[in-house]
Design a protein around this nucleic acid. Structure first.
Lengths: 192, 192
DNA sequence: GAAGACACGTGACCC
DNA sequence: TGGGTCACGTGTCTT
């Protein structure tokens, strides 16, 4: 038993050396890992592993939360508009829930802006990228007796779309601008 | 030597058992750690440690970058708007506009609005149609260390132009959004 | 069969 | 004197 399964003496030495090398590499890795963990007091193997696990979980969680924040940032920026005399400023820190904001609808999109010049209408829409979004919007616009002359959709950020439409009033058109925006907004909300 | 420092036979067994327990805990920790590393192929001890180290560094870096981004995002959006009577109407969800217009004095153009999302910048300009207007504007934008990804100019009414530009910050870019708008506005005024 | 990884028991060392 | 951790050499199993 003893002699039969034992390695040849020459190889036995190599085996010892190889194992030594392996242990050395692992110890080194332990050291490197421990160096990355902030506020690590006990440096025994299991503590290093345990704290690494805990720290890693914590980092993953925080990273996820931050990414979520950054992703939502663009969306949130549209919700709140704070007004001063000459310019608009949107500041996330100062603009926590504004009284003027319509709190009923959670999603502020679509953000709609319209202007007129004689028979021409300019419509700007800021919304989330959506399947069939553009054609639906154009369809809604045409339902209001507006004939679209030109449209342009620019993707911006992760999932936002800036749409600009120039249209012309048909003879049947008789809405006020405010009603136009309201009607359009309601129409768009039905498929968003 | 050999016998003198050897443990008593009773304690020797406890020692073996304790060591077993310790090894078991470490192995378990290795397993838990490996479970936290995404896309980990080899699960040998040294690979787990090595990949954990790499992944941890990567997470720390990303977390730092995200926090920096979130911190920098104090001023999110700045919009310069001069209102004239027949032009501007707002949706209910934004604040009501006041009636203090200064219509006659100056040319309100160009109206400039800018937004950011990470390294992307959206610029919307409302100005009078002008010879070389568009190329001048793009030129001004590029002077600010912004590389234009997409631009669109829509004529509206008799002599007005709605321009939308999506650009990306180059490494040299370090302006606040407010300064960007101000600088751009001054640059554009020089040839209008 | 050669090379590598692992768990094991063991002696040493340290509060 | 214990109770804990470590490094070591070794046997075994897997490529």
């Amino acid at each position: 038993m003893v002699g039969s399964l034992t390695r040849a003496p020459l190889l036995a030495q190599e085996h010892v050396i190889a194992e030594r090398k392996r242990r050395e590499r692992i110890s080194q890795s332990f050291l490197s890992l421990a160096a990355l963990i902030p506020g690590l007091k006990k440096k025994d193997k299991n503590s290093v592993l345990g704290d690494a696990i805990e720290y890693l979980k914590q980092l993953q969680e925080r990273k996820a939360r931050l990414e979520e924040q950054v992703a939502k940032r663009t969306v949130e920026s549209v919700k709140f508009v704070k007004k001063t005399t000459q310019f608009y400023e949107q500041d996330d820190q100062t603009s926590s829930y504004d009284e003027n904001f319509d709190t009923q609808s959670k999603n502020p999109f679509p953000d709609i802006e319209a202007r007129v010049s004689n028979k021409d209408v300019l419509i700007r829409i800021h919304c989330e990228t959506n399947k069939g979004c553009i054609s639906n919007i154009i369809n809604e616009v045409e339902k209001l007796h507006l004939s679209v002359l030109n449209s342009n959709a620019l993707p911006f950020g992760q999932a936002t779309l800036y749409i600009t439409i120039v249209a012309q009033m048909e003879d049947e058109f008789s809405m006020t601008l405010r009603d136009l925006v309201k009607t359009l907004r309601e129409g768009l909300l039905s498929f968003m």
